[in-house]
């Protein structure tokens, strides 16, 4: 099986999530190979899990003030603040049969690629089921998976830097006031690459590519014209729509 690797791209939240879905569709019908992609979010964005309520999780007023996009993902899990400078996001899209039926085991395989990438940067990391990667007991990466129409889509983020103040201002964190104590508490639970390594973001990206492709037959490629067209449709008609945004 030959994989397609789509190198680091930057899109807005709506196109990023729409492209994951468009690629899932094309992998399902066999017009595209299994795909690994890496991407940034610009503008910065908050994504919420499929089952979350956007009003519960996101301070929409602050997002508007800061120009932060808000989007509901196709996958479950929690709310995530995507900072352009502070993270790299990946997606793995392949026939579900490529991975174990057991969802935790499949998280373990893909998160294992991230762990290897971190190790190559000299950062000792561990997979913590369900969907986290920890460094010295602190979360550095979270992932979310869905399986629809026989296709597995897993996407996740790897934190490069931390901007906790903005993160807490855009997320409704238990509706508590943002306090120094709260930020200190988060610092004790969350970490990022820059706290453990001098590697540049480019070097981190290269480490991820090497780890994700190790032992695989692959080639670099781009999303197809059809995938881009479908992603633009989904971006406009689904991911930007109020119906989708306020689904729960």
């Amino acid at each position: 099986m030959k994989w397609r690797v789509i190198g680091l791209e930057t899109h807005d939240a709506y196109f990023n999530m729409a492209l994951d879905e468009a690629i899932s569709e094309s992998v399902r019908v066999g017009s595209s190979p299994p795909t690994i992609r890496f991407y940034n979010w610009e503008p910065n964005a908050v994504s919420i899990g499929y089952f979350q309520g956007i009003r519960d999780e996101v301070n929409l007023e602050v997002c508007r003030e800061l120009g932060v996009d808000c989007i509901r993902r196709w996958t479950g899990g929690g709310a995530v603040y995507h900072d352009f400078d502070g993270e790299i996001t990946y997606s793995v899209i392949a026939p579900a049969g490529t991975f174990p039926k057991n969802i935790i085991e499949s998280y373990g395989i893909i998160c294992g690629w991230l762990v290897k990438g971190l190790e190559s940067l000299g950062i000792e990391a561990e997979f913590r089921p369900v969907n986290d990667i920890l460094v010295k007991g602190k979360k550095i990466s979270g992932s979310a998976q869905t399986r629809r129409g026989g296709i597995l889509l897993q996407h996740g983020t790897l934190l490069y830097g931390l901007d906790l103040k903005t993160m807490f201002s855009v997320l409704n964190v238990s509706r508590q006031k943002i306090t120094d104590k709260m930020i200190k508490s988060a610092e004790e639970r969350v970490t990022c690459i820059s706290e453990h390594s001098d590697a540049s973001k480019e070097e981190v990206y290269e480490a991820l590519v090497n780890a994700f492709t190790e032992g695989k037959d692959y080639e670099f490629g781009a999303s197809s014209i059809d995938e881009n067209k479908r992603a633009r449709e989904l971006s406009q008609e689904k991911y930007r729509s109020d119906e989708w945004m306020y689904l729960r």
Partner: peptide, 11 residues
């Protein structure tokens, strides 16, 4: 209405 940060397959 049920919401949260859990996972359920199929959604």
């Amino acid at each position: 209405k049920i919401s949260g940060d859990f996972f359920l397959h199929p959604e």
